[in-house]
Amino acid sequence: MLAFLSSLFINGLVTGSMFMLVALGVTLFYGVLRIINLAHGDVFMVGAYMAFYAGTYLHLPYWAVVIVTMMGCAVLYPILDLLVFRRLRGSELGPLITSVGLSMALESLVQGIFTANAQAVPSPYLNNLVNIGTVSVPLQSLLMIPLTLVVVAALYVFLRRTRTGLMVRAVAMEPRVSQLMGVRPEYVYGVVFVLAGLLVGLAAATMAPELYVTPTMGVELTVDAYIVVVIGGFGNVEGAIVAAFILGLINSFVSGLGLADWATTIALALLVGFMMVRPSGLVAERLGVRQ
């Protein structure tokens, strides 16, 4: 019983880590640019295909696959911003609508290149089982937890201790005033897109070996990311971190009860409930205190 519970717990942490890496980008987009980007999961999907291509066709070692994917997403996102979002700065619903178009375009482009068949990303750690007490977990899953911790720490240091991070937080709070301080908003927006790309790229490279990679895998992840962001509070980085692990654990334990089919429904009901009762999210707002 204890073994079962602790395996569910570890599983929840792993899923939560992935949710967190994906949701952090979404919450940064909202906090700094005030946009809803429904194509974020599709960028994850593109990242997963990058990992697939780098691993299967270029035969890169796994660590190189991770780096290539992160870099690829970090380059891709600013380009997408330039093509898709930049002209719509300041519009409330415009970027949301274009992101729907972007999601469709990315899905069909990837399908055109790689077909709709499910692909597998190779990783040496997939068959490496690690025993923790009585539970054995694939090393691939366990890799996710320390990597995520490192990344979160790095993000925290970046936002709290560097001048660029300070600019990101300042623009999130008061974009007009930041401009008076000589901050170019477009520079900060560019930083946010690169950050979101790095985070989602890491998620894609580490999670893809455990998932079936298909062109439509992104939609579900977008939905999960928004559940996290709603529970954590829109634009709230700390909230997203907490909420991602909560959602990961809920997912894992609901599945453990034999209700795997209902996990999404329950999480979505949670989203709707939070929106009705506490739209500011679990944790009081810190990053975007703009009314």
Binding site: R163, L166, M167, R169, A170, M173, E174, R176, V177, S178, L180, M181, G182, V183, R286, L287, V289
Partner: peptide, 17 residues
């Protein structure tokens, strides 16, 4: 137009960023 969510020091840093 100060940044309420930043500390006094961080606000000053923003001034010369």
């Amino acid at each position: 137009g100060i940044f309420y969510g930043l500390t006094v020091d961080e606000n000053l840093t923003m001034g010369s960023v």
